[in-house]
Design a protein around this nucleic acid. Structure first.
Length: 928
RNA sequence: GCCCCGGUGGUGGAAUUGGUAGACACGCAGGACUUAAAAUCCUGUGACCCGCAACGGUCGUAACGGUUCAAGUCCGUUCCGGGGCACCA
């Protein structure tokens, strides 16, 4: 009987589904564990070998935890709304719902082949009205909420209305208005009103004011508009001035948009990182994105004007080194302060800045600017400071104006040099006259009352002084902006909002879901609106024509798995209390500042509103590496049909052509397959071989159909089996590591499984398994394996775990061990890694129930303790080093101690120790 | 430019806290079985030196220096690669 993986895998995949072995109950006496994969976007290209890497890693852990006695939630679903399906619809006229359904079934087929233990009864699909009903519902909760800075909580807007009725907004000023919400009355009042005034406002004004506070709000703002995609993009979807998807140019445009007030959560998002187990790199990325900095806002008097110039700085200690001021070209004071003689040049400069695209500005980064003719006054020594305009100061950050300290800031220094402005040295020797020194550790000079002080210590002193003089305040700033939450697109969740006379009315809960209507055309509507604006039945009901962005559905999906079919609530609190946080979340780093940040914010809002009981969604995050493609090339001699092997190509003038990796064995081209490739396009090819072989060129590239370097996991499953495929993916290297895919080597893992099989069955002799007592030596092998597999699995070191299995099987083969007692335990260990073959062997051993319900072997018995333990060693009383002591070989009696490490042993011999003394079981004293 | 991570045989990669570097696998070479092939099994495989041989010795984890009885691991400097951020005051 041989290892027939095809039959085995087919049989068990069917049985597992029939018997519902992966169905997980929502209550259990077992402790819970939640293992989650970042659900995929079902693209038309299907899965390649890169995708399952993380899925396999999480599947192993889920199965392992189940064996360990946990009730494990391990679901899967689809992030099905998004741009590509809509682009496909535009190009091919296929409705996104149809292409998405088709893609999902392809994905499902591929996933099923690999043998994952997903509880498919909990499958979610973000584009399913039954799902997005609740996305819309949560949106409404955010819409009906505001962020109370007094207690740092998301609260219902009714509470705010009550406050306004009682005291106006004196204690709750408008959050920093980053995006205009147009209301004249409100502007006249300068954003402040009393309770009495509130009561006199009409409905529209009240609505506009409340909009300034809502967590999900609508306003006019500069957005990243991508003409080619016909939509607005979030900051994290724009890379270097072009769209992340497709690389189309992106420009700033003012449009009516929905936003999430994520900036209010900035501090909590930052603090929350301390209590979750994310990699340092991930925490740093999120930290950078949030970009917290603390410093002060300082008002500078402007010579000859009543207005003050307010700047933000993190370095108030350098205030005596301010040689000029710079304001952003869009700064509101520009017009007022510009003197008549500089008017023309300022206007020219602003026109120049406007003419430059975001992209040009980023790419060139050249020094430019213009003097306004106005002067600010240093509050401490009344020095006249010229005010300049330059695009290197951003209108959207801080106050849009800075105090420039050329001796301490590189950009200011370059600017000063370029325009020949004087540079005041406040750093003494620490400034070399050539380049700025941003240190905080220099001693201040030329700095009035700060002279002689270390800069670091001067910061607080200056801020206190400024506050005393009432011209400055301590201030914290964030780089993060509120998140744009609307897309001018069709294939997304409709907003459950009706616009009547400029007022946004939320739909009633009973009206949800607001289903996406059917459209014939996906063309944009008038004035940059989405396709929904073209549908009379939609607009006549005054529905919002934007749709939600891709991250809406993915911000809360992990909660829906807990209670996937509930049509009364998004998730019964009873169940979210039970399943609680995701214990292990597996996915790529590409979602560092998008999805992960948004879902963390949603969870904080839901927590504040009392809808769930935890405020961080993911307890531990495991980032799998990217699998790159390994492309193969053939070299065609130019103008001929001859193909020359890699080693000889330099003798000819050749063109490099991608060739399908799947018809190349390692580096050697399969010539027969090549001739058949692409319907015989190369049938007449001739070859110039080296040593009777055709060797291909290699390069690492992104895995993509057009490079012919994709490898379909289903093909590998068909050829070697899912168990081999799973183990091989893990064997490639650490899960976190990125690496090019290489199928070479999969044979080794396959060989291992065949060898394992031969411990149970022999082609001639049949069943080899004996129900005999294992020898100490055999148990030693087993116990060592149990220990190692447990350790390796716990720390996600799956590649070494696979090696451990190989060593174990090799050793058992050498020992000719076919004992049931040993083999049974071994295959339980193997289940998470190779579930099909383990299940089959488990049944061959006479077990009736599934191996999934077995328990992970516990280490018992004396053979287990083969460990050497390390103890500190002191020589003549002084702590010198550590030594390993074999606990099996010796009980705590000095004379019997065996030094496991020969190096130390040798060294001790050289020293001729007179005595080795054991002290308190902790420390070994050696008297030399 | 700034921040993070890494650099180990022909290759992918092991080496949990400093303790016999190179586990395991691929590849390669040789052998066994076979009419042959496939499959399977065995042996060798970092470099160099000595020797008929078992064996022994020296060097070796990007480079140099340091700490230590002991360094791939810790510290310093340099070089190279990968990732992230990038006018954020």
């Amino acid at each position: 009987m041989e290892y027939n993986f095809r039959d085995i895998e087919k049989k068990w995949q069917q049985k597992w589904i029939e018997e519902g072995v992966y169905k997980v109950p929502n209550d259990s006496s077992r402790p819970k564990y939640y293992v989650l994969d970042m659900f995929p976007y079902p693209s038309g290209a299907g899965l390649h070998v890169g995708h399952p890497l993380g899925y396999i890693a999480s599947d192993i852990y889920a199965r392992y935890k189940r064996l360990k006695g946990f009730n494990v939630l391990h679901p899967m679903g689809y992030d099905a709304f998004g741009l590509p399906a809509e682009q496909y619809a535009i190009e091919h006229g296929v409705h996104p719902a149809i292409s998405t359904a088709k893609n999902i079934s392809t994905f499902r087929g591929q996933l099923d082949k690999i043998g994952f233990c997903y509880d498919w009864s909990r499958e979610v699909n973000t584009s399913d009205p039954k799902y997005y009903k609740w996305t819309q519902w949560i949106f409404l909760q955010l819409f009906k909420s505001w962020y109370n800075r007094k207690n740092n909580k998301t609260e219902h807007i009714d509470g705010l209305i009550k406050i306004f009725e009682e005291e106006g907004n004196i204690n709750h000023p408008v959050p920093d208005a980053k995006f205009e919400i147009r209301n004249e009355k409100f502007e006249v009042l300068n954003g402040k009103f009393s309770a009495d005034q509130w009561k006199t406002f009409d409905e529209k004004t009240k609505h506009d004011i409340l909009m300034e506070y809502r967590v999900a709000y609508c306003g006019y703002g500069e957005v990243n508009w991508c003409e080619a995609l016909g939509t607005v993009l979030a900051n994290d979807e724009v890379v270097n001035g072009v769209s992340e998807r497709g690389g189309h140019p992106v420009v700033k445009k003012k449009l009516r948009q929905w936003y999430l007030r994520i900036t209010e959560y900035a501090d909590r998002l930052l603090e929350g990182l301390q209590k979750v187990d994310f990699s340092d790199a991930m925490k740093e990325m999120q930290g950078n994105w949030i970009g917290k900095s603390s410093g002060a806002e300082i008002d500078f008097a402007i010579d000859g004007h009543n207005e003050k110039l307010r700047v933000y700085t993190t370095r108030p200690d350098t205030i005596f080194g301010v040689d000029f001021m710079v304001v952003a070209p869009e700064h509101e004071l520009v017009e007022q302060i510009t003197t008549s003689e500089h008017k023309q040049s300022v206007e020219d400069y602003i026109a120049y800045v406007k003419s430059r695209s975001e992209r040009e500005r980023m790419a060139e980064k050249k020094i430019s600017g213009v003097f306004t003719g106005a002067y600010a006054l240093n509050p401490f020594d009344s020095k006249k400071i010229p005010i300049w305009i330059s695009e290197y100061v951003l209108a959207g950050y801080g106050t849009g104006a800075i105090m420039a300290v050329p001796s301490g800031d590189e950009r200011d220094h370059k600017f000063a040099r370029y325009f020949n402005l004087p540079i005041t040295n406040i750093l003494g020797d620490a400034y070399n006259g050539e380049e700025a020194n941003p240190t905080k550790d220099a001693v201040l000079s030329n700095s009035g009352f700060l002279n002689g002080m270390v800069m670091r210590n001067a910061i607080d002193i200056v801020i206190n002084k400024l506050e005393e003089m009432r011209i400055g305040v301590r201030k914290v700033n964030y780089k993060m902006r509120d998140a744009a939450f609307s897309r001018q697109r069709y294939w997304g969740e409709p907003f459950p909002i009706k616009w009547i006379n400029g007022i946004a009315y939320p739909l009633d809960e009973s009206e949800l879901p607001l289903e996406l209507p059917h459209v014939e055309s996906y063309k944009p509507g008038p004035e940059g609106e989405g396709p929904l604006a073209n549908i009379p039945e939609w607009t006549s009901q005054h529905f919002e024509t934007n749709t939600m962005p891709g991250y809406a559905g993915s911000s809360w999906y992990f909660l829906r798995y807990m209670d996937a079919h509930n049509d009364k609530e998004f998730c019964d609190k009873k169940f979210s209390d039970y399943w609680n946080q995701v214990d292990l979340y597996v996915g790529g780093t590409e979602h560092a500042v998008g999805h992960l940040l948004y879902s963390r914010m949603w969870v904080k809002a839901l927590f504040d509103l009392g809808l769930i009981s935890f405020d961080e969604p993911y307890r531990k995050l495991l980032n799998q590496g990217m699998i790159q493609g390994s492309s193969r090339f053939v070299f065609r001699v130019r103008g001929t049909n001859q193909y020359v092997s890699f080693g000889l190509k330099d003798k000819y003038e050749t063109d490099e052509l991608h060739v399908d990796v799947n018809i190349v064995d390692g580096l050697e081209l399969n010539i027969e397959e090549f001739k058949k490739w692409r319907n015989g396009e190369y049938a007449d090819a001739e070859f110039i071989l080296e040593g009777e072989k055709y060797i291909c060129g290699v390069e690492t590239e992104k895995m993509s159909k057009r490079y012919f370097n994709t490898v379909d996991p289903s093909d590998l499953c068909n050829k070697y089996g899912a168990d081999t495929f799973r183990m091989y993916e893990m064997f490639l290297g650490p899960v976190e590591m990125s690496k090019p895919w290489d199928t070479k080597g999969i044979e080794g893992v396959h060989r291992f499984l065949k060898k394992l099989w031969r411990l149970f069955f022999d082609e001639v002799k049949g069943n080899l398994v004996k129900d005999e007592k294992a020898t100490p030596e055999e148990l030693k092998v087993l116990h060592r394996t149990i220990k190692k597999i447990e350790e390796d699995t716990e720390r996600f070191s799956y590649n070494t775990a696979v090696s451990t299995f190989m060593v174990c099987v090799n050793e058992l083969t050498d020992l000719k061990c076919h004992k049931k007692e040993v083999l049974e335990q071994l295959i339980i260990l193997l289940t998470p890694y190779a579930p099909h073959v383990s299940e089959e062997l488990w049944h061959q051993l006479g077990n009736a129930s599934t191996i999934l319900d077995a328990s992970f072997p516990k280490l018992e018995g004396k053979y287990l303790v083969e460990t050497t333990k390390e103890y500190p060693i002191s020589i003549n009383g002084k702590l010198r080093t550590t030594i390993n002591i074999d606990l099996n070989a010796a009980q705590p009696h000095v004379e019997e101690i065996v030094l496991a490490n020969p190096v130390v042993q040798k060294w001790l011999e050289g020293k001729q120790p007179k005595k080795i003394i054991f002290v308190k079981g902790k420390m070994v004293n050696v008297v030399v």
